[in-house]
C-alpha cells in the first residue's frame, strides 16, 4: 500500500511493545509517557487507515479483497486505543503487559496487511 508507513508503524509498535514490556518487567503501570507513545502509534495507524481508504477510492484493489483489507485497517486503528483503555482500568504491571501484547499484535497485523494489499509480492 504505502510501504514506508507500514514499516514505520511496525517499528513504532514494536518499540512501544518493548517499552511497555520494560515497564511491566519493572512492575510499573503505564504512565503519561507511555500514553503519549500510544498516541503516536495510534496517529500513525489512523494515517494508514486514511491512506488505505484513499488508495481504494482511487480505484486500486487489495490483492486479497477489499473487505478483508478494510477490516484489517480498522483493527489496526482500534488496536492500541483499546489496549490503552484497558491499561487505564488495570493500574498494575499487567496493564503494561497488555499494552505490550496489543502492540505486538499490531506489528503482526502490519505484516499481514502488507500481504493482503500486495499478495505477498510487491508493495
Amino acid at each position: 500500500m504505502f510501504t514506508p508507513l507500514t514499516v514505520a508503524l511496525a517499528v513504532a509498535a514494536l518499540a512501544l511493545a518493548v517499552w511497555c514490556g520494560w515497564a511491566a518487567y519493572r512492575d510499573q503501570p503505564t504512565k503519561d509517557w507511555h500514553f503519549i507513545g500510544m498516541a503516536v502509534v495510534s496517529v500513525l495507524a489512523l494515517a494508514q487507515l486514511a491512506v488505505g481508504i484513499v488508495r481504494l477510492a482511487g480505484g486500486e484493489d487489495a490483492a486479497e479483497g477489499t473487505v478483508i483489507f478494510v477490516a484489517y485497517l480498522a483493527a489496526v486503528a482500534a488496536c492500541v486505543p483499546v489496549v490503552g483503555l484497558i491499561s487505564l482500568t488495570e493500574r498494575t504491571k499487567w496493564g503494561s503487559l497488555t499494552v505490550a501484547a496489543g502492540a505486538v499484535v499490531l506489528a503482526v497485523l502490519q505484516a499481514r496487511l502488507h500481504e493482503i494489499w500486495g499478495g505477498g509480492g510487491g508493495a
Binding site: 489496549v83 484497558i86 482500568t89 488495570e90 498494575t92 499487567w94 496493564g95 503487559l97 497488555t98 501484547a101 496489543g102
Partner: peptide, 9 residues
C-alpha cells in the same frame, strides 16, 4: 483482573 486482564485481552 491482574494477569486475568492480559488473558481477557
Amino acid at each position: 483482573k491482574g494477569p486475568g486482564t492480559l488473558l481477557v485481552t
